[in-house]
Protein backbone atom coordinates (compact mmCIF):
# COMPACT_ATOMS: atom_id res chain seq x y z
CA UNK A 1 0.00 0.00 0.00
CA UNK A 2 1.13 3.58 -0.56
CA UNK A 3 2.59 5.33 2.47
CA UNK A 4 2.54 8.91 3.74
CA UNK A 5 5.04 10.03 6.35
CA UNK A 6 4.19 13.15 8.35
CA UNK A 7 7.01 14.90 10.19
CA UNK A 8 6.10 17.10 13.15
CA UNK A 9 8.02 20.34 13.82
CA UNK A 10 9.85 18.52 16.67
CA UNK A 11 11.08 15.86 14.22
CA UNK A 12 8.86 12.95 15.25
CA UNK A 13 7.49 11.02 12.31
CA UNK A 14 4.32 9.00 11.76
CA UNK A 15 3.88 6.80 8.69
CA UNK A 16 0.43 5.78 7.47
CA UNK A 17 -0.46 3.11 4.95
CA UNK A 18 -3.30 4.51 2.88
CA UNK A 19 -5.62 3.53 0.04
CA UNK A 20 -5.18 5.08 -3.40
CA UNK A 21 -7.53 7.99 -3.96
CA UNK A 22 -7.20 9.51 -0.51
CA UNK A 23 -5.59 12.92 -0.02
CA UNK A 24 -2.80 13.89 2.34
CA UNK A 25 -5.32 16.00 4.29
CA UNK A 26 -7.98 13.29 4.55
CA UNK A 27 -5.48 10.67 5.69
CA UNK A 28 -4.09 13.05 8.33
CA UNK A 29 -7.48 14.14 9.69
CA UNK A 30 -8.87 10.58 9.69
CA UNK A 31 -5.86 9.27 11.60
CA UNK A 32 -5.43 12.05 14.11
CA UNK A 33 -2.18 13.52 12.77
CA UNK A 34 -1.60 16.68 14.81
CA UNK A 35 -1.11 19.95 12.94
CA UNK A 36 -3.23 19.35 9.83
CA UNK A 37 -6.71 20.80 10.28
CA UNK A 38 -8.56 20.84 6.94
CA UNK A 39 -11.32 23.03 8.30
CA UNK A 40 -13.00 23.58 4.90
CA UNK A 41 -13.24 19.87 4.17
CA UNK A 42 -10.80 19.83 1.27
CA UNK A 43 -11.98 22.72 -0.91
CA UNK A 44 -8.73 24.73 -0.87
CA UNK A 45 -10.69 27.44 0.94
CA UNK A 46 -9.03 27.68 4.36
CA UNK A 47 -5.28 26.99 3.99
CA UNK A 48 -5.18 25.01 7.27
CA UNK A 49 -3.64 21.88 5.76
CA UNK A 50 -0.38 23.50 4.63
CA UNK A 51 2.57 21.06 4.39
CA UNK A 52 6.14 21.19 3.10
CA UNK A 53 6.78 18.34 0.65
CA UNK A 54 10.27 16.84 0.72
CA UNK A 55 11.93 17.79 -2.60
CA UNK A 56 12.55 14.21 -3.74
CA UNK A 57 8.76 13.74 -4.08
CA UNK A 58 8.01 17.06 -5.76
CA UNK A 59 8.09 15.70 -9.33
CA UNK A 60 5.28 13.21 -8.74
CA UNK A 61 2.86 15.90 -7.54
CA UNK A 62 0.06 17.50 -9.55
CA UNK A 63 0.68 21.10 -10.66
CA UNK A 64 -0.41 23.83 -8.25
CA UNK A 65 -3.67 25.31 -9.49
CA UNK A 66 -4.33 29.03 -9.20
CA UNK A 67 -6.71 28.71 -6.22
CA UNK A 68 -4.23 26.63 -4.23
CA UNK A 69 -1.44 29.01 -5.20
CA UNK A 70 -3.35 32.05 -3.94
CA UNK A 71 -4.37 30.36 -0.68
CA UNK A 72 -0.79 29.25 0.02
CA UNK A 73 0.32 32.88 -0.18
CA UNK A 74 -1.82 33.51 2.89
CA UNK A 75 -1.09 30.38 4.95
CA UNK A 76 -0.21 30.99 8.60
CA UNK A 77 3.31 29.57 8.31
CA UNK A 78 5.86 30.87 5.84
CA UNK A 79 5.40 29.71 2.25
CA UNK A 80 8.42 28.08 0.62
CA UNK A 81 8.94 26.41 -2.77
CA UNK A 82 8.04 23.13 -1.00
CA UNK A 83 4.62 24.41 0.21
CA UNK A 84 1.42 22.63 -0.79
CA UNK A 85 -2.10 22.23 0.55
CA UNK A 86 -2.47 18.62 1.71
CA UNK A 87 -6.09 18.53 0.46
CA UNK A 88 -4.92 18.99 -3.12
CA UNK A 89 -2.47 16.06 -3.14
CA UNK A 90 -4.11 12.76 -3.95
CA UNK A 91 -2.34 9.45 -3.45
CA UNK A 92 -2.36 7.55 -6.75
CA UNK A 93 -0.26 5.14 -8.78
CA UNK A 94 2.26 7.91 -9.52
CA UNK A 95 2.77 8.62 -5.84
CA UNK A 96 3.36 5.42 -3.88
CA UNK A 97 5.31 7.14 -1.13
CA UNK A 98 5.64 10.72 0.14
CA UNK A 99 7.24 12.47 3.11
CA UNK A 100 6.02 15.87 4.27
CA UNK A 101 6.88 18.31 7.05
CA UNK A 102 4.09 19.93 9.06
CA UNK A 103 4.50 23.64 9.86
CA UNK A 104 4.40 24.97 13.42
CA UNK A 105 0.93 26.50 13.02
CA UNK A 106 -2.09 26.56 10.67
CA UNK A 107 -4.21 29.38 12.14
Amino acid sequence: MPTITYTQPNGTQQTLEVAEGTTLMRAAVSNGITGIIGECGGQAMCATCHVYVRPEYAQALPEIREDEDEMLDCAAAERTDRSRLACQIKIDAELAEIVVDIPAGQL
Binding site: R26, V29, G32, G41, Q43
Partner: peptide, 26 residues
Protein backbone atom coordinates in the same frame (compact mmCIF):
# COMPACT_ATOMS: atom_id res chain seq x y z
CA UNK B 1 -17.81 17.31 8.13
CA UNK B 2 -21.01 18.56 6.56
CA UNK B 3 -19.78 21.06 3.91
CA UNK B 4 -18.57 18.36 1.45
CA UNK B 5 -22.01 16.67 1.53
CA UNK B 6 -23.50 19.19 -0.92
CA UNK B 7 -20.35 19.33 -3.07
CA UNK B 8 -17.70 16.60 -3.56
CA UNK B 9 -19.85 13.94 -1.93
CA UNK B 10 -22.47 14.21 -4.69
CA UNK B 11 -20.05 14.09 -7.62
CA UNK B 12 -20.67 11.26 -10.11
CA UNK B 13 -18.83 8.05 -9.23
CA UNK B 14 -18.69 5.48 -6.48
CA UNK B 15 -20.09 6.30 -3.05
CA UNK B 16 -17.58 8.55 -1.33
CA UNK B 17 -16.33 8.18 2.22
CA UNK B 18 -17.42 10.93 4.62
CA UNK B 19 -14.64 13.08 6.02
CA UNK B 20 -14.49 12.76 9.82
CA UNK B 21 -14.15 15.88 11.94
CA UNK B 22 -11.56 14.06 14.04
CA UNK B 23 -10.07 10.59 13.74
CA UNK B 24 -11.50 7.77 15.85
CA UNK B 25 -8.37 7.81 18.04
CA UNK B 26 -8.91 11.48 18.96
Amino acid sequence: QRPPLSKDYLAPGKEPVPLPLRGASF
